[in-house]
Write a protein that binds this DNA or RNA. Structure first.
Ligand SMILES: [Zn+2]
Ligand SMILES: [Zn+2]
Ligand SMILES: [Zn+2]
Ligand SMILES: [Zn+2]
Lengths: 132, 132
DNA sequence: AAAATAATTGCAACAGTATTGCAAAAAGAT
DNA sequence: ATCTTTTTGCAATACTGTTGCAATTATTTT
């Protein structure tokens, strides 16, 4: 974790390590609220800034869906300060409401005449493995 | 427009007609802020409720993307109170920031072992026709 | 190891987004 | 025209997120 921060040219602080630890303790995407609950005592503004910094540096990515759903998850690797490049899809379970980052064998290509496509994000909804 | 509202069992009111008119005047997705600007004098709470109702009834759909991007667009047809079924993708232009609902010939199928997939949403980013 | 530098944190104040309860007004039905 | 039900508008409130600034902390330099 310290190396991750250093590789992104961020200082290693207790607060950042605490937030990173929470992310690593969760397999699936988590909400800001969940982080707040698990942090114990903390400053909300610092958390918002930390999240923003982590997103900008390519440490975590944001997942948004209709219905004011907003979650965060660790990036796997090839994300950097300039862009997020995820070759996984986001699956939301209609039963347990968990959001999973799931690798997929054949990431589909999208072609639109006249439009230059730089990135594609795919979101799926249904019933997850555990709830099936 | 009146028939659209009646078909969804909603009363025809000036406010709703005004909001619907704004949607029909725009080819691409619009933000709540844009609607506010074009409505002239209005009540904000009523607008929020109207948007919520329209989404619930399958008249409009919400498009969300990382970075607090939230826009709204008319549903084409087969959406109802129970679910939205869009066979189009959402394209965001990195240059003009417009969001387009675009029909696509081969809507990709997603398969995930163990997961039951009910709906798939696709978002793409790049450069639009006009900005190319 | 101490001092200097630069980044980060914590507080206060504020801005934007959205929801709830309730009475008044408007729409549709009789 | 009257009745019933939905919708609107207002007040109050909650949630989410941002900005400026001084104090603190991490890293670099001496
Ligand atoms: Zn589930
Ligand atoms: Zn993900
Ligand atoms: Zn464009
Ligand atoms: Zn659309």
């Amino acid at each position: 974790m310290k190396n991750l921060l250093r590789s992104k040219k961020l200082r290693v602080t207790d607060f950042r390590l605490a937030v990173l630890t929470i992310f690593e303790q969760h397999k699936n995407a988590i909400s800001t609220e969940q982080i707040e609950n698990e942090l114990g005592e903390f400053d909300r503004i610092t958390l918002y800034r930390t999240i923003k910094t982590f997103i900008e540096k390519g440490i975590i990515h944001e997942i948004t869906m209709p219905g004011n759903i907003k979650k965060l998850a660790l990036c796997h690797d090839n994300c950097n300060a300039k862009e997020h490049q995820h070759q996984h899809i986001h699956f939301r379970c209609n039963s347990c409401a968990e959001i999973f980052c799931l690798d997929i064998d054949d990431y589909p290509e999208i072609n639109l005449k006249g439009y230059q496509i730089d990135a594609v994000e795919i979101q799926a909804k249904g019933i997850c493995k555990n709830c099936a």
